[in-house]
Design a protein around this nucleic acid. Sequence first.
RNA 1: GGAGUUGGCCAGGCAGUCGCUCUGAUGCAUAGCAUCAGGGAGGAAAGUCCGGGCUCCACAGGACGGGAUGCCAGGUAACACCUGGGGGGCGAAAGCCCACGGCCAGUGCCACAGAAAAUAUACCGCCUUCUUUGGGAGGUAAGGGUGAAAUGGUGCGGUAAGAGCGCACCGCGUGCCUGGUAACAGGCAUGGCAGGGUAAACCCCAUCCGGAGCAAGACCAAAUAGGGGAACACAGGUGUGGUCCGCACUGUUCCCGGGUAGGUUGCACGAGGUGCGCGGUGACGCGCAUCCCAGAUGAAUGACUGCCCCGGCCCUAAAGGCUACGACAGAACCCGGCUUACAGGCCGACUCCCAUU
Length: 119
Amino acid sequence: MSAARLQKRARLLKAVDYARVFDNAVRSSDQYFTVLARKNDSSNPRLGLAISKKRAKLAVTRNRLKRLIRESFRLRQQELFAADYIVLAGQTCSKATNSELNHSLDKHWQRLNKLCAKS
RNA sequence: GGAGUUGGCCAGGCAGUCGCUCUGAUGCAUAGCAUCAGGGAGGAAAGUCCGGGCUCCACAGGACGGGAUGCCAGGUAACACCUGGGGGGCGAAAGCCCACGGCCAGUGCCACAGAAAAUAUACCGCCUUCUUUGGGAGGUAAGGGUGAAAUGGUGCGGUAAGAGCGCACCGCGUGCCUGGUAACAGGCAUGGCAGGGUAAACCCCAUCCGGAGCAAGACCAAAUAGGGGAACACAGGUGUGGUCCGCACUGUUCCCGGGUAGGUUGCACGAGGUGCGCGGUGACGCGCAUCCCAGAUGAAUGACUGCCCCGGCCCUAAAGGCUACGACAGAACCCGGCUUACAGGCCGACUCCCAUU
């Protein structure tokens, strides 16, 4: 099995999973994204997405953001703490370019790794 | 060559790496994983504005109410769509646009101006007549003035002045004839003129329409609470009480029904695509052959790199270089339309102008 895969088990799929993270999480945010994280009981990190219509009006834009976030998570997941992550869309994310968003996400993953290690 | 009109089509391409989802096969031995093969967004997937299929509910039949449509004919499963035709408007033309039934069934409304906005009526004027020379009485609707709109228009006759008062032509109404399936068009005769506009005002007439929607509907079904039944035990425990009886609550196992989270299904063969032939002016229909062409569900269809292409920018030009740029936009039960958004490009038909042969 390749290390850079992103399977269903690495995703948050249920409402209860989301609720657990929102309930008590560490956060990292900038103008593009807010990323929430909470340690989980399984061995691998899991990803959830929350891109609101308010922040990204067009369906095309929302899809693009989700794909970018999944891609970034997929490539970095080996370095991440075993926790549940939720990425929320920020103010200006719909206007930014792909490379800008990728850089932003990289920073978030690093910062959350430190925060999770402390807690 | 230029200006324009119109119909149709495309929606960057190729390669590599890393992924996502579905289908089939094989293997491991099953919440799956691996390998191989194959499929994986649009012309608008959008707005959710119409029309259907499908599903459930309701329903003897009908009426009222409500809504939609509104020249005619055809197409279609159906439509507010499409095609052909008629009428009106715009344009030099190709062509484009039109809610295009009825206010002599009824009711309402018509600001300002104006004498008067519809039961009618007369400000100035014109004519006749009377007169105390201020004006009064009568006739008139041709002229002036108002208005978006004023009781047909033009001309001639006629008259005191005028007036469809009379006549001709036009308009309008009615009747007949001819052509056309029809809308309608044309012709002839006749009536002297009926009498403003507004129906995206109520309304009238004709035709059509039951309601809700895939979160429809069907099936499986935890945990927790609780309902019904059977068997076992018929003993024990708790409460009431001084104690017994009694009364109330409480057991174990199994079954049944409802049903939440969740899952499966509906869910991808269809008013289906492509090609050919035939019928039709056309929309479209018929026949034959052939193809299987997305199926996600916190929601897949992507990211990165390189090359090319098309724009843009730099450069005197070429060569070359740069690039945050690559239209509008993402399926969610499925079709037929409409509407709106849209970088750039390709193909065809037609009109007008200029030049040349």
